[in-house]
Amino acid sequence: MANPLRRRSPLDISPAAKLVSYVLLIGWSFIVLFPLYWLAVTSLKLPVDVDRGPFYLPFVDFQPTLAAWRNILFELGDDTLRPYVNTIVVGLSSAGLALVLGSTAAYALVRFTYRPRVGLIALGAVCVAAAYGAILGGVPWQLAAVSGVAVFALLAQAVARRSRGTLANDDIAFWLISQRILPPIAIVIPLYVLFQQVGLLDTQLALVLTYVAANVPIVVWLMRDYFMALPVELEEAAAVDGASVYRIVRSVVLPIAVPGLVATFLITLIFAWNEYLIAVVLSSAKAQTMPLLVAAQDATRGPQWWAMSVLVLIMIVPVIIMAVVLERYISRGILVGAVKG
């Protein structure tokens, strides 16, 4: 058996540094894992064992019970399963969509030049504002939308000819990320009205669309940095060989960007997986997701710690599985293989 502290390559660090590394890694692991252990222990307790004081070891200082697990998994079976399925569907599809949209946009912002004209943007803003004003004033929203777009199309050419100021890629990127500044609390009611108008309340689709819009800016920003760090020579070589942009992206860029893509996918998946406020407003029965169930355990009786612990634990299992499966793609073996192959 090889000594784990032994030095293997010039990049390796000294045994003493390795020892320190292990101490630090294990120390932080303990900080991360202890609260989770406490959740696991709490899920096995009766209310009275939670209230009487801290007990740490099942069988040793309290008698464990599966009551909370039975209640959540069997007695409430369907009421747990439905949000669970919703969470999986909404989380995966919104993260997947956000990754596709966001990473292509990020690539475009790194490799292409955009010069949107200030005049056109201002015109668009004016048209949008006028359309909203009309809707608030009682005009049917379909009519307002169509006429807003029509006015924009009519005036666009004239305005574009006169306006000289342009924006750059950086401005587009900043505009995208700025969409995340406003706290969700301020936008959920308008979103509710929006989805109510188009009849999408309490559907998975509404949640997926909202999460895509909310998470795409993060994907763009993270992926932009990963793309910028990629060596451009490979793409140049492919372009010289006559490959199309799509082909270059698919067979040159994406394979090298896998670590970034995986990390970003995990982050957006987690954001969508765990989102609470938008879900609570946009869903009522069919489309409820798991965070709502967790929050619901704090009701008139105070938090039902045991049930809450069970829910949190079953909620993180799929994400952990995803992380375990995807983690290997964040490692350099794949990357080097892709670049060389």
Partner: peptide, 17 residues
């Protein structure tokens, strides 16, 4: 808008515990 114009359907049942 057209595809979504139907009024939201009634929420599905919550199975009784």
């Amino acid at each position: 808008a057209c595809s979504g114009a139907t009024p939201s359907s009634a929420p599905a049942s919550v199975a009784p515990a």
